[in-house]
Design a protein around this nucleic acid. Sequence first.
DNA 1: GTCGTAGATGAAACTCGGTGTCACGCTAGT
DNA 2: ACTAGCGTGACACCGAGTTTCATCTACGAC
Lengths: 199, 199
Amino acid sequence: MTGAARASSTTRDIARAAVRAELGQVAFELFCREGFDKVTVDELAAAAGVSRSTFLRYFGTKEDAVLAAFDGHDRRLADAVRARPAGEDDWTALRHALDTVIERYHRDPSGALATMRLVRDTPALWARHLEKQHRWGPALAGALAERAGSTGPATLAQSVRAAAALDCLNVALDHWTASDGRLDLVVLLDEAFAALAAR
Amino acid sequence: MTGAARASSTTRDIARAAVRAELGQVAFELFCREGFDKVTVDELAAAAGVSRSTFLRYFGTKEDAVLAAFDGHDRRLADAVRARPAGEDDWTALRHALDTVIERYHRDPSGALATMRLVRDTPALWARHLEKQHRWGPALAGALAERAGSTGPATLAQSVRAAAALDCLNVALDHWTASDGRLDLVVLLDEAFAALAAR
DNA sequence: GTCGTAGATGAAACTCGGTGTCACGCTAGT
DNA sequence: ACTAGCGTGACACCGAGTTTCATCTACGAC
């Protein structure tokens, strides 16, 4: 049965999420140690103690096992933008919304650093990540539009600002990664936004 | 032979380029008609009258057969930036450099439109394209740095501006594509850059 | 408590993209 | 004419991802 299934489900989902996290963790460590494309799905499955089938059921692709770490960022970012005061200009709202994301980098710098390195150094991962991240743009722009009271789709200006904000994040992360996490991400982000403002 | 091989080579290279162009054209048409992932490499090769091996020698991957159309854009963009007057500010230089790129879209609007659609509607293509395009950023930023008389790597500010300029291009192309090429790309690009300026 | 069902797992076969190897043939320089 | 090099085709091979099917387990209905 099953009438009222949907929504907030139960033990099963929790277990699933836990397994998924575990698989992701195992995969991540193997990738870091051996290199992303030196590890086959069979090896991942073996290392995690499940079958190849199961692994591929949890993560549709090898890439997803790593990139799942970024899932939900778009949602969180958009929510953060919507939570900013109504009168605030787009740039300020975007800049503050990004604090939501970089918080993770402060909580676990070495893990974040390792993830960044793995993703950036693996073309297949980097490509997939860019594709996913590119989709944050419209989500962010939509949030800007809502804030502005619009019901329709985002304007060109809002889209550009959202995309530029994400570039700031990426460039700041570039420099942060290059510095082995020694530089301050907040400072780098501020600097990046300042570069947009300067004529 | 062969002492002075390198540089400006001969018949062979010209023939190679022609074959490559031909293969790309055939592939593009098939992709548009059938959908990128409905077409196998064997079918591409057969349609072009060559063997699978040969096709994959010309284009390392199926994606490359489409994305080769964008090859050289980075170089052209960077050169265009370097060609701008020394005193000009970064934004103006970037904006004008982009005219170099969109020129192609004016020369063959319907072809460009079809390419855009194919790339944007095929996740694998879009991901690879973003990855390639992302590399234009550093090239552009490097050009900005040179213009500024710097010998070292680009600054964070220059990187951000280069990336933002590419976003402007992408967003403008988005809207242009959505309008079936009816809107004016130049106007859209100007609008996009204006959105960056507005506080 | 037993039964029945749905979901999670594992096994295996299959398709396809991409790599590497090798042998053949054409062509261009000697 | 000879031959060295390059483009080509034909395989064989690997690994990712899809699909299908059989099994098992846990949970709800009765």
